[in-house]
């Protein structure tokens, strides 16, 4: 069972008083990208090109390659962290691991009582990914979300969760958006 304080703390960090309108043109990002913009955009373009070429050559096999790469990376990074049985603590650990690249929070629809949901024989947790370097790269290159580059993130999360908890896991896309993506972490 996830503790209320951790959930509250997490939700609080994603709560703002900002009003977002469709017609808003951003004047600044945090941190300001002016000093690193060219380098960052170069990396984004390069990543986009690699993924596009991989898709052209390997077709649907591209997803398997990128998923595998992400999973290896997840295992690699998380093996230096403390092993935990508790999924909540593992997610906490994971959010620290991913900070700077991805930020996420556990989420549930209004009609669900707990964050760990059991439905149709599956145990899962909804994760809302807010900041995501994959999404930024795809949008920089005008590529669709949910493709092979997203599989790297899937692999990364699954690999890290498996490494920390020792449990098998799977991540599924529920919805992708310009500001956040909803994903389902299925625990086995």
């Amino acid at each position: 069972m996830m503790t209320a304080s951790y959930i509250d703390e997490l939700h609080e960090s994603f709560h703002t008083d900002i009003v977002y309108r469709s017609e808003d043109i951003p004047l600044e990002c945090t941190p300001r990208p002016s000093e690193m913009e060219e380098t960052l955009h170069g990396v984004m373009k390069l990543n986009g090109l690699i993924i596009r070429s991989l898709e052209e050559i390997a077709g649907r096999g591209a997803n398997a390659v990128t998923y595998r790469a992400g999973k290896k990376f997840g295992h690699e990074i998380a093996k230096y962290f403390q092993k935990r049985d508790d999924v909540e603590e593992a997610l906490h650990e994971l959010s620290d691991l991913l900070r700077g690249q991805y930020t996420f929070e556990v989420w549930k629809p209004e009609d669900k009582e707990n964050f760990i949901i059991e439905e149709d024989g599956q145990t899962f947790i909804y994760l809302v990914f807010h900041d995501c370097i994959v999404r930024q790269t795809l949008r920089r290159n005008g590529q669709e979300q949910g493709g092979p580059l997203c599989q790297t993130l899937f692999g990364y999360v699954v690999g890290a969760i498996e490494e920390i908890t020792g449990r098998r896991a799977k991540l599924e896309i529920v919805h992708t958006g310009p500001n956040a993506c909803l994903k389902k972490l299925i625990l086995k």
Binding site: C29, Q136, T137, R139, N179
Partner: peptide, 11 residues
Amino acid sequence: RGIYPARRHYI
């Protein structure tokens, strides 16, 4: 209102 705006370094 009350949205968390994700980083948009691609802009």
